[in-house]
């Protein structure tokens, strides 16, 4: 009995401590305060990939609109969909204006939750489906476009004629990126070899690193990859002096000497438009796509890497061609 009591006290203390720490994420419900956004993300906000891209967009919007007009809270590392669903429901009942479920795995949960909160707006991605529910937005990235541009540069820079791709799972924007990358590389040098490897995980850093070693062993001198586990692969690339092309976020900080360029998702175009619509009373029903043309996708060159002028021109011409439609990736759409 004494032991049970002790345990009980311990649990109470622990939960007190936890709730004290979590207090910062609470928010009050007021109608005329700042526009309030809550976002649920599968990985960490500083993952140098998917979650970070949304975090940076919201931070930028906050800086532009000012803290008195815009505020956001987030729950990151929500890889377990059930936990994410609970968080989404919590945020909804706390009166946020917009709740973003930043992950294609959250779609089914949103479909269930959104009708229960008709005055709250929800958004999810990457996906193109609003389920015909009036308070759901959807957003996706034509990541094949940046993939294509990266592929063009990769093929131009490869001396060995072999390029390696470290992919996570063969779905969503990762697959689009990889397919676009291959298309771009082949369009530049039809006889180039692009070895693709999906490691079956978004988070297995060790296997991503080993996959990069394997690509190097197979003769690749340029690598790319998608999702947050690529940090393992970038480490290998840096050690072996292999060039790297990034996607989702700017990855040049991780290995300034070998990252050539990164495709960056800039969700501000999407979120800005959603905010405007919500303020007018439209709570959903629109599906967004970020592209090179609407500048939701950007190719960020790494200043630390000395890219030859003709390859850079080639990349810029490719970007211009994709924007005006004279170049097609032939992937997705």
């Amino acid at each position: 009995m004494k032991r049970v009591l002790k345990l009980f006290v311990l649990v109470m203390l622990a939960s007190l401590l936890l709730s004290a720490c979590g207090g910062a994420q609470e928010a009050q419900t007021t109608s005329d305060g700042p526009f309030k956004v809550a976002v649920v993300m599968p990985s960490a906000v500083n993952d140098l990939a998917f979650s970070q891209s949304m975090f940076e967009a919201l931070t930028q919007i906050k800086n532009e609109m000012g803290a008195e007009n815009f505020d956001f809270v987030y729950s990151d590392n929500m890889f377990v969909v059930d936990d994410a669903a609970a968080a989404i429901r919590d945020y909804a009942s706390q009166g946020y204006n917009l709740i973003i479920a930043h992950g294609s795995q959250y779609g089914a949960s949103l479909k269930e939750i959104a009708p229960d909160f008709p005055k709250t707006s929800f958004a999810w991605g990457t996906a193109g489906d609003t389920f015909d529910i009036p308070n759901i937005f959807a957003y996706e990235a034509y990541s094949q476009e940046g993939g294509y541009v990266n592929g063009v540069m990769a093929a131009a820079l490869s001396q060995s004629g072999t390029i390696g791709v470290v992919g996570p799972i063969e779905v969503g924007d990762a697959k689009l990126y990889v397919d676009g990358f291959i298309a771009g590389a082949k369009a530049t040098k039809p006889d180039i070899t692009v070895n693709v490897n999906y490691i079956g995980s978004f988070s297995d850093v060790a296997l991503a690193s080993e996959a990069a070693q394997t690509h190097a062993g197979a003769g690749a001198d340029v690598l790319t990859g998608s999702a947050q586990m690529v940090v393992g692969a970038i480490g290998v690339a840096e050690e072996r002096g292999i060039l790297w092309f990034g996607t989702q976020a700017d990855q040049s900080s991780l290995a300034p000497s070998i990252v050539v360029a990164s495709q960056v998702y800039d969700w501000t175009v999407v979120v800005d438009d959603m905010i405007a619509l919500i303020k007018e009373g439209t709570l959903g029903g629109k599906a967004y796509v970020v592209t090179l043309e609407n500048e939701g996708l950007l190719i960020v060159f790494n200043d630390g890497y000395d890219l030859s002028a003709d390859v850079k021109t080639l990349a810029e011409n490719t970007i211009a061609g994709l924007k005006d439609g004279s170049i097609k990736t032939g992937v997705g759409e």
């Binding site: 992919g167 070895n195 490897n197 999906y198 296997l207 080993e210 394997t214």
Partner: peptide, 21 residues
């Protein structure tokens, strides 16, 4: 595990989901 990585890299046609299993 390293075999399944190699199998994919050298382009043997196995669905990646099967390989990682």
């Amino acid at each position: 595990n390293s075999l399944q990585v190699w199998v994919q890299v050298i382009g043997i046609e196995i669905p990646s989901d099967i390989a990682v299993m």
